[in-house]
Every structure is written in C-alpha cells, then in structure tokens.
Nucleic acid binder design. Structure first.
Lengths: 187, 187
DNA sequence: GCGATATATATCAAGCCAATATAGGGGCTC
DNA sequence: GAGCCCCTATATTGGCTTGATATATATCGC
C-alpha cells in the first residue's frame, strides 16, 4: 500500500503545512486538491502514529484564547520514509465522477436536463482550472509541473465535453422525435 | 447523497448487468470503469436492500455444479428511483492520483526515477484509452458519448503529460547541476 | 450586538474497499 | 491423473475513510 494517510501527511508536512488544520487546507483548497483528498478523521490519527514512529516532531504553541496549536515537523527519518513510499509501485489514477455516471443514463432524462448537466460539468472544470492557479509562490519543480498540467488538463477536458456534446444531444433528439418536432409526432 | 451504492447498482441493472458478479465486472472492466468503482462488499448488501424496498426483483437459477445464480431485474419503481437520484444535485468529480502526488515530490527523487514515473503514467492512460474501446455493442446515447469522451480525454491527458514533462525535467537538472554535468549520477 | 466565518483539535457513526472463504468446472502442464 | 491456476458466483469481515458533529474563541461585516 503505497499512499496511505500517513504518507500523505508526511508529504504535506514536507510541503510546509505544519498543523492538522493546515494539512487539511492543503488537500481542500491547496496544491493537492486536484489529485488527493484527506479529512480530519484521517489526519489526526495519522499525525499521532507518525509521532509515535519518530517520523515527525511536535511542539505545542499556547495561543491567546485560541486552542493550543500543535506544530509538526518532518524528521530526517520521516523524509526517508516518504521517499521510500513514493518509489513503491503506484496504483493507477481513479476517477469518481457522478456527472459521468448520470450522463450514462441520459436516455432516462429530458434533453433539457441533459443540457443543464453538461453546462454545469464543463463550467465546473473551468472554475477548477482557475482555482488551481492560486497556489503558493515558488513551488518545487514537481508542483510547478502539476499546476501547468492541471490547468491545461481541466481546460482541455471542458473543451472536450463541449466538443462532443452536440453529438449526444443529436442522438437524444433522434431517439425521441417528439422533442425534435416540438409536439407529439408519435413514435 | 446522490450516488450511493444502491443507486450505482440500479444503474448497472438498467444497463443490463443482472447478477452481483456481473455488476462488479461492469465497474471493473466494463463501461463504468472510467468514472465509478464498486466492490462486492457494497454490491451484495445493496442488492438485498433494493430487493427489500421493491426496487428490484430476484429469480434464482439453479446451475449444473456452479452455485445458484441470482438474476436481478430493475422494477418500474426502481427505474423511477434511479431517475430521481440522478436529478439531485451532483457532487463534483474527484480524482485520486498516486502518480501526481508522487510527482509533487520530484525534488526528492533522482531524474531517472521521475522519468520512469512519467513514462508509466502516460502509458497507463494510453492503455486505458484502448480498454475503453471494447464495450458493449449499440450502447444508449449517453454511454456512446462517454466512450468517445473518455477515449479522447485519456489520449489528450497522456499527450499533455508528454508535452509538459520536458519543462519538469529541465527544472530538475537546473536545480541539481551535478546531474546536468554527468558527474555522480546516482539512480 | 448579532450572525457568519475562521482558527484549531478531536471523535464517532456510517459507509466502503480489499481481502478472504466457499465451492465446483475447465484447461493447462508434467 | 495429479497438481495448479483461473473463471464463475455469492457472501462476510476487518480496517480504513468520509462527513458530520462537538468544543472554544476571535474577528469581520452590518
């Protein structure tokens, strides 16, 4: 198992996110949002396990009013473990798309509903492309590459949807002539 | 929650996959492999729940030697439930990519390791594009659209990786001049 | 002054995945 | 024909993850 939640946390720490709260932001809005996700229920237990294994250190900072901040830092052993995990054979990408699954049943919907779905889907990827732009300044080479790749990929995917949607919409009206004619012309 | 495992099973049944074993294949190698996944641990309980709710029917077929086959069929109520679930607001696509996460830490690897990662990554998408071609004959409009979209999307993504990789590899050697000069190239 | 949002840690129920158990058939090698 | 692996087929379980919730305070807009 190459990339469990402990490895993901080590990566976030190496990238400069040093509290549980910050790590979650890195996966929610930050540089990792495009290709990984991680929630509190995984992060806090993972940090405790990493601490027990000596792969991270923790210094508590008392703050005015706010709850104490636990600032974590990756150790040299941690960085070695991260490097080792990244070199193991990696599982291939897995996409979970409710939009695509819904579109697989376009024949069960009205053409108007399908068109709205396609609009929302393409727009979502255009918005995501913009979100990917605003990340940290001067990232390492790998993350610079991923920003460019992610932005172009999202825009290209949106364009691909817009390119092929006409064929789908034509297929649907061809199957349901009543819609094409605008009135009940029979089947 | 729009697309839980019960909804996914209803969809697979509507698409003509009518046993638990078959449904899994639809998500493993079949038309849904690109955008959803579902395992036995979800499928069998979901089918039981759907049966209890009257959204599917089940007829047991005794077979020579082999265990009895439970053939499920979606009911009209089931198709209505499927339609209703697909029209609820859908969550946006979520990608889980171990390759991209690993590449985010390219600065922790040797250039050779990064190059191999990029090779494997692009090749994986080219192979996936081929796998997507062999699906069932004469699919409904939505799935025809998704096949075209999926194939073009995978190929485009592979090309996008290959287009941007040179910049990454240049960045990495610029950071580590020893590698550029050819001295002590540890792999 | 009031609700909304942000900081920050932590836990829990519900759900899901990967692995395993069970069981017979077909095909392959030696 | 013995051993072995893969395919069909259903079912269960352990362990992990998500999403929601609890707690406590500060700041910001209005």
């Amino acid at each position: 198992m190459p990339l469990d939640s402990k490895t993901l946390c080590l990566g976030a720490l190496d990238a400069g996110y040093n509290t549980g709260y910050d790590i979650r932001k890195a996966f929610e809005d930050g540089p990792f949002q495009l290709y990984q996700s991680l929630s509190y229920g995984s992060i806090y237990p993972a940090l405790n396990a990493l601490l027990a294994d000596g792969l991270v250190t923790c210094t508590e900072q008392a703050q005015d009013g706010r709850p104490d901040k636990k600032v974590y830092a990756i150790t040299e052993a941690g960085r070695t473990a991260l490097r080792a995990a990244l070199l193991q054979p990696l599982g291939f990408d897995r996409l979970r798309s409710e939009f695509m699954f819904a579109l697989a049943f376009a024949h069960l919907m009205s053409p108007g509903q399908v068109s709205r779905l396609l609009d929302d889907y393409a727009r979502g990827y255009r918005e995501l492309a913009e979100d990917l732009a605003c990340t940290d300044a001067d990232p390492p080479p790998g993350r610079r590459f991923l920003v460019r790749l992610g932005q172009e990929g999202c825009l290209t995917w949106a364009r691909c949807v817009e390119k092929h949607r006409a064929a789908l919409e034509a297929d649907l009206t061809a199957r349901d002539p009543a819609v094409a004619a605008g009135a009940g012309t029979g089947d």
